[in-house]
Measured scan of single mutants.
Amino acid sequence: IEKFKLLAEKVEEIVAKNARAEIDYSDAPDEFRDPLMDTLMTDPVRLPSGTVMDRSIILRHLLNSPTDPFNRQMLTESMLEPVPELKEQIQAWMREKQSSDH
């Protein structure tokens, strides 16, 4: 029984630690959010139409349809242009958020 109590305490400790580690990014500025999924972008790319999306989301879309989801023009992965300035701004915002939450 004592071992179970210790195990339960350890589990509670881990759960509390994980809860502290989770950071809420739901208040991200609109320009940091993917327009299709409304999630925080981690690897922004510009489509030929000028729309900026997260790379993982547009690549997932391209698996089903080789088109720009906003104007239905033909689109391939090679046409995606990285946006390193925005990526750095997002990373800086995330770092600031992490340091203010801890």
Rank of each mutant, 00 (worst) to 15 (best):
Ile1Thr: 08
Glu2Gln: 08
Glu2Pro: 03
Glu2Ala: 07
Glu2Asp: 15
Glu2Gly: 08
Lys3Asp: 03
Lys3Asn: 13
Phe4Val: 08
Phe4Asp: 08
Phe4Ser: 10
Phe4Ile: 11
Lys5Ala: 11
Lys5Pro: 08
Lys5Ile: 07
Leu6Phe: 11
Leu6Val: 11
Leu7Val: 07
Leu7Asp: 04
Leu7Ile: 09
Leu7Phe: 14
Leu7Tyr: 11
Ala8Pro: 11
Ala8Ile: 06
Ala8Thr: 10
Glu9Asn: 03
Glu9Met: 05
Lys10Leu: 03
Lys10Met: 10
Lys10Ile: 05
Lys10Asp: 12
Lys10Gln: 11
Val11Ala: 11
Glu12Trp: 03
Glu12His: 07
Glu13Asp: 13
Glu13Ser: 12
Glu13Asn: 04
Glu13Gly: 11
Glu13Arg: 05
Ile14Lys: 14
Ile14Thr: 09
Ile14Arg: 05
Ile14Ala: 05
Val15Lys: 12
Val15Leu: 12
Val15Pro: 09
Val15Phe: 06
Val15Ala: 12
Val15Ile: 13
Ala16Gln: 04
Lys17Gln: 13
Lys17Ser: 04
Lys17Leu: 11
Lys17Trp: 08
Lys17Asn: 12
Asn18Gly: 05
Asn18Pro: 04
Asn18Tyr: 10
Ala19Pro: 10
Ala19Ser: 07
Arg20Trp: 14
Arg20Glu: 11
Arg20Cys: 10
Arg20Leu: 14
Ala21Pro: 11
Glu22Lys: 05
Glu22Thr: 09
Glu22Asp: 09
Ile23Lys: 14
Ile23Gly: 07
Asp24His: 08
Asp24Gly: 11
Asp24Val: 07
Asp24Ala: 08
Asp24Tyr: 12
Asp24Lys: 02
Tyr25Gln: 08
Tyr25Val: 02
Tyr25His: 09
Ser26Trp: 15
Ser26His: 11
Asp27Phe: 14
Asp27Asn: 09
Asp27His: 06
Ala28Glu: 00
Ala28Thr: 14
Ala28Val: 13
Ala28Pro: 10
Ala28Ser: 13
Pro29Ser: 04
Pro29Thr: 07
Pro29Gln: 04
Asp30Val: 09
Asp30Gly: 08
Phe32Ile: 02
Phe32Ser: 01
Arg33Thr: 05
Arg33Asn: 08
Arg33Gly: 01
Arg33Trp: 04
Arg33Lys: 12
Asp34Gly: 00
Asp34Tyr: 01
Asp34His: 00
Asp34Ala: 00
Pro35Cys: 00
Pro35His: 01
Pro35Ser: 01
Pro35Tyr: 03
Leu36Glu: 04
Leu36Ile: 15
Leu36Val: 15
Leu36Ser: 02
Met37Arg: 02
Asp38Asn: 04
Thr39Met: 04
Thr39Val: 02
Thr39Ala: 04
Leu40Met: 09
Met41Thr: 00
Met41Arg: 00
Thr42Tyr: 04
Thr42Pro: 04
Asp43Asn: 08
Pro44Ala: 01
Pro44Arg: 00
Pro44His: 00
Pro44Ser: 00
Val45Met: 04
Val45Phe: 00
Val45Glu: 01
Arg46Asn: 02
Arg46Lys: 15
Arg46Gly: 04
Arg46Thr: 05
Leu47Ala: 08
Leu47Arg: 00
Pro48Leu: 01
Pro48Ala: 03
Pro48His: 02
Pro48Ser: 03
Pro48Arg: 03
Ser49Tyr: 15
Gly50Arg: 09
Gly50Ala: 03
Gly50Cys: 03
Thr51Ser: 13
Thr51Pro: 15
Val52Gly: 00
Val52Ile: 12
Val52Leu: 05
Met53Ala: 15
Met53Val: 15
Met53Gly: 05
Met53Arg: 01
Asp54Val: 00
Asp54Glu: 11
Arg55His: 05
Ser56Thr: 06
Ile57Asn: 06
Ile57Val: 13
Ile57Ser: 14
Ile57Leu: 04
Ile58Met: 03
Ile58Thr: 04
Leu59Val: 09
Leu59Gln: 09
Leu59Met: 15
Leu59Pro: 01
Arg60Gln: 05
Arg60Pro: 01
Arg60Trp: 01
His61Arg: 01
His61Pro: 01
His61Gly: 00
His61Asp: 01
Leu62Gln: 01
Leu63His: 11
Asn64Phe: 15
Asn64Pro: 00
Asn64Asp: 04
Asn64Lys: 02
Ser65Gly: 03
Ser65Leu: 03
Pro66His: 08
Pro66Gly: 07
Pro66Arg: 08
Pro66Ser: 08
Pro66Ala: 12
Thr67Ser: 06
Thr67Leu: 02
Thr67His: 03
Thr67Cys: 07
Thr67Asn: 06
Thr67Pro: 00
Asp68His: 00
Asp68Val: 00
Asp68Gly: 00
Pro69His: 00
Pro69Gln: 02
Phe70Cys: 00
Asn71Ile: 02
Asn71Arg: 00
Asn71Thr: 15
Asn71Cys: 00
Arg72Pro: 00
Arg72Asn: 01
Arg72Phe: 04
Arg72Cys: 02
Gln73Pro: 00
Gln73Ala: 15
Gln73Arg: 06
Gln73Glu: 04
Gln73Gly: 03
Met74Thr: 13
Met74Phe: 03
Met74Asn: 05
Met74Leu: 14
Met74Arg: 11
Leu75Arg: 00
Leu75Pro: 00
Leu75Met: 04
Thr76Pro: 03
Thr76Leu: 10
Thr76Asp: 06
Thr76Val: 06
Thr76Arg: 05
Thr76Ile: 06
Glu77Gly: 07
Ser78Cys: 11
Ser78Ile: 05
Ser78Tyr: 07
Ser78Ala: 13
Ser78Arg: 12
Ser78Asp: 09
Met79Ile: 05
Met79Trp: 12
Met79Leu: 08
Leu80Pro: 00
Leu80Val: 07
Glu81Met: 10
Glu81Trp: 03
Glu81Ser: 14
Pro82Ala: 11
Pro82Thr: 08
Pro82His: 04
Pro82Arg: 06
Val83Glu: 11
Val83Gln: 06
Val83Met: 09
Pro84Ala: 13
Pro84Arg: 08
Glu85Lys: 13
Glu85Ser: 07
Leu86Gln: 04
Leu86Arg: 06
Lys87Thr: 10
Glu88Ala: 14
Gln89Arg: 12
Gln89Lys: 12
Gln89Pro: 03
Gln89Glu: 07
Ile90Ala: 05
Ile90Phe: 03
Ile90Leu: 07
Gln91Arg: 13
Gln91Ala: 03
Gln91Tyr: 09
Gln91Pro: 01
Ala92Thr: 10
Ala92Tyr: 10
Ala92Leu: 07
Ala92His: 10
Trp93Tyr: 04
Trp93Arg: 02
Met94Gln: 12
Met94Val: 14
Met94Arg: 14
Arg95Thr: 14
Arg95Gly: 11
Arg95Ala: 14
Glu96Ala: 12
Glu96Val: 11
Glu96Met: 02
Glu96Ser: 08
Glu96Thr: 15
Lys97Asp: 11
Lys97Arg: 14
Lys97Val: 07
Lys97Pro: 07
Lys97Thr: 13
Lys97Ser: 08
Lys97His: 12
Lys97Gly: 15
Gln98Glu: 14
Ser99Pro: 12
Ser99Ile: 09
Ser99Leu: 09
Ser99Cys: 09
Ser99Asn: 10
Ser99Arg: 11
Ser99Gly: 10
Ser100Pro: 12
Ser100Val: 12
Ser100Asn: 12
Ser100Asp: 15
Asp101His: 06
Asp101Glu: 09
Asp101Val: 08
His102Pro: 11
His102Phe: 08
His102Asn: 12
